[in-house]
Amino acid sequence: MNVLVVGGAGYIGSHCVRQLQVAGHTPIVLDNLVKGHKESIPAGVSFHEVDLADSPKVIEILKSEDIDIVMHFAAFIEVGESMQDPLKHYENNVAKTISLLKSMREAGVNKFVFSSSCTVLGEEAEPPFNETMPLRPISAYGQTKADVEVILDYCTKAYGMSAAIFRYFNASGAAEGGIIGEDHSPETHLIPIAIQVALGQREKMMVFGNDYPTPDGTCLRDYVHVDDLSRAHIAAFPLLEEKGRLLTYNLGTGTPASVLEIIKTVEEVSGRPVPYDLAPKRAGDVPSAYADSAKAKSELGWTPQYGTIRSIIETAWAWHQSHPRGYEDA
């Protein structure tokens, strides 16, 4: 199928582009490059530098590229920033998604895959997190994702479109061989921060709290490889042939790792120290968060190929070691 990957120059989107090629589909990238990197797009892939708010151009692309399905990864993801500037996140994550859905209707494209987040479930949820838990986000970012989930529920019922929602836990790792990887500015994710310390780009890192009710006192999180996430999205395509269908899946390995485990594993993989200081707990950080992905495994036949935190970190290290300045070294 011809697949429009919105945000296809970003971290998850760029990996999905390559997995689409592996699966025999034709990816077409639409990205405004506010957060994405043009260098991450494979040679020969059709690329349109367009903002979702430009409906006429989006409609033209949907028609001219004969798009069968749209995958949407173009969100702002910084939780802290979303609390400081919620309107920025609502405009990009909600208003522009509405604009995209309207453009799809105008162009007659009825299949949609949406990148959501486990943050829609809030801090009161008890792990493992499944798809039946109520939406109780505690950040503006999480609320924007929850709002789009609700919008998609109504759209599938009203317009006969079909949609798949994927709630990620901690997307991690990089493509095999270090071809593409994670390059955020600012970087807020634990694994790349620990790797930056190992590379000497940061003097040390902070560990926020060490007295949680977990085996080593630090937070437990579910890390899932970005290519595994991408493969799950593609596995949903056949199920979207049924009009009016809404699918929701939580994606994670189900085996969480602690902050100190991440640091230790980065040290082992890199062969370098990762010094850290202890800092007070952060508001909103829950002791443990990990996925129940039984539904994705049952309905999609999905099984993570990167089942251990070490296998994930090894791919991240390969990328960061060969691209210490990210895509500036591409």
Rank of each mutant, 00 (worst) to 15 (best):
R105K: 15
L152N: 10
K63C: 00
K88L: 15
L87N: 15
T119M: 05
T132W: 10
E182S: 11
E187G: 01
D85H: 13
D153C: 08
S185P: 01
E65W: 01
I180P: 14
S162D: 03
G177I: 03
D68I: 09
Q196F: 07
E131Q: 11
G200E: 05
Y168M: 08
G108H: 09
E123P: 12
A163R: 06
I67M: 03
V70L: 03
S115A: 07
G122D: 09
D183C: 06
L101A: 08
C155S: 10
S82N: 10
E91Y: 07
E123H: 15
F169I: 03
A163S: 12
G200T: 10
F112H: 08
E149T: 09
Q84G: 10
G80L: 03
M133L: 15
G122N: 04
A140T: 11
F114C: 01
L135Q: 12
N93Q: 08
D153G: 15
D85E: 15
E123G: 12
E149R: 05
T132R: 07
F76K: 09
A198R: 13
E65Q: 05
F114A: 03
E182N: 13
L87G: 10
S99L: 04
Y90W: 10
R167C: 02
P192Q: 02
R105A: 11
L62W: 04
I151C: 08
M161K: 04
V197T: 11
D147W: 10
I138E: 12
K102S: 13
Q201F: 10
E65P: 00
A75Y: 02
Q84T: 13
R105C: 04
S116I: 00
I61P: 01
P134V: 12
N110Y: 15
I180L: 14
H72K: 01
G160L: 02
I193Q: 05
Y168W: 07
G178M: 01
A194R: 06
S139T: 15
S117L: 09
T144M: 06
S117K: 05
I165N: 11
D68P: 07
G177R: 08
H189N: 12
F129D: 11
F112N: 04
N170D: 04
S82G: 04
E187Q: 06
E131P: 11
A107Y: 01
G122K: 12
T156C: 14
K145M: 12
I67Q: 02
M83E: 15
P192N: 05
